[in-house]
Amino acid sequence: MTDLTDTRAEVRSARTSARKAGRTGAALAPYLQAAPMALVFLIFFVLPLAATIAVSFWQYTQYSIEPAFTAQNYGDVFYGCLANLPSLCTTFLTYISTLKFCLIVWATTLTIGFTIAYFLAFHVRTLKVQVICFLLCTIPFWTSIVIRMISWIPLLGRNGLVNQTLMGMGVIDSPLEGLLYSDFAVILALTHLYTLFMVVPIFNSLMRIDRSLIEAARDAGASDLQTLRHVIVPLAKPGILIGSIFVVTVVMGDFLTIGIMGGQQIASVGKVIQTQMQFLQFPLAAANAVILLAAVLAAVWALLRLVDIRKEL
C-alpha cells in the first residue's frame, strides 16, 4: 500500500512539475516571439536615441567632442529666447514656421485625402475598380521623393510651364515669382508628397463602416451632408488620426522639401540641425534633435488625446 501511494504521489508530483515546466515554456513563448523585433528596436532605435541624448550634454570644440554633463547646448538652442522678448529668437521663429507648415499641410492633405478616400470607398462600386484606383494613387511612389519634388521646379519656375501657359493665355503680363522658392511651393510639394499618407488609413476606416448605418441615416431623413458629418466622419476618426500622425511627424522633421522648394531661404528645424552638423557641432545638433523629438511627441500626444485610438480600433 505504502509503496503504491508513494508511487502515486511521485507520479502526481512528476506530472505537476511537467505541467509547471510546460507553463513556463508557454509563458516564455510570447517573449521569444517578440524578441527579434525588440532586438531590432533596441539596436536601431533605442541605442542611437540614447547616444543622441547623451551627446546632447557633451562639450565640443571645432574639431572635438568631449564627454561631459553640461546644459550649455540646450542653453545655446534657446539663446536669446527669454532675454529678447517680445521679439522672437531663432528657435521660436523656426518652430513657428515649421508649425505653420504642419497646420497648412495637415489641412490640405486631410481635405484632399478624405475626398479621394470617400470617392474610392463610396462612389467606386466594385472591389476590382477600387483596387485599381487605389494602385493608381501609389504610382508616384515608384520614383524617389527627391525626384517627385524636383520635378515641380521646371513647372513652377519663372520661365516654367505654368507661367508660360498663363502668359500665353494673356492672364498675366509678367511671370508670377511666388510660384517657386516660396511658402506656396513648399506647401504644394509637401501636399503632393504626403496626401497618400492620409488616403490609405482613411480609406481603410471608410471601408469598415457598415453600409447599413448609412442607409439607416438616410431612412431617418438625414441629408447627405448630415450623414457625412454625423455618421461617416465620426466613424472615420481612427483613419484620420493615423493619417494626421503620419503627416504631422513627417512635416515636423522635414528639411529636404522645405530646403529645395523654399530655395534654402525658409527655416526648418531639420535645416538648423544640418547646418550645425556641417560645422561639426554635434552636441548642439543633438540637443536640437532631442528638442525636436520632444515637440513631435507632444504633437502626437495631443492628437491621441483627441481620439481614443485603442477603443476605436
Binding site: T90, T94, Q264, Q265, I266, A267, V272, T275, Q276, F279
Partner: peptide, 10 residues
C-alpha cells in the same frame, strides 16, 4: 553659424 541660422529664420 548661430547668426546664419538667425538669417535663414528671419
Amino acid at each position: 553659424v548661430r547668426k546664419w541660422n538667425e538669417f535663414i529664420a528671419a
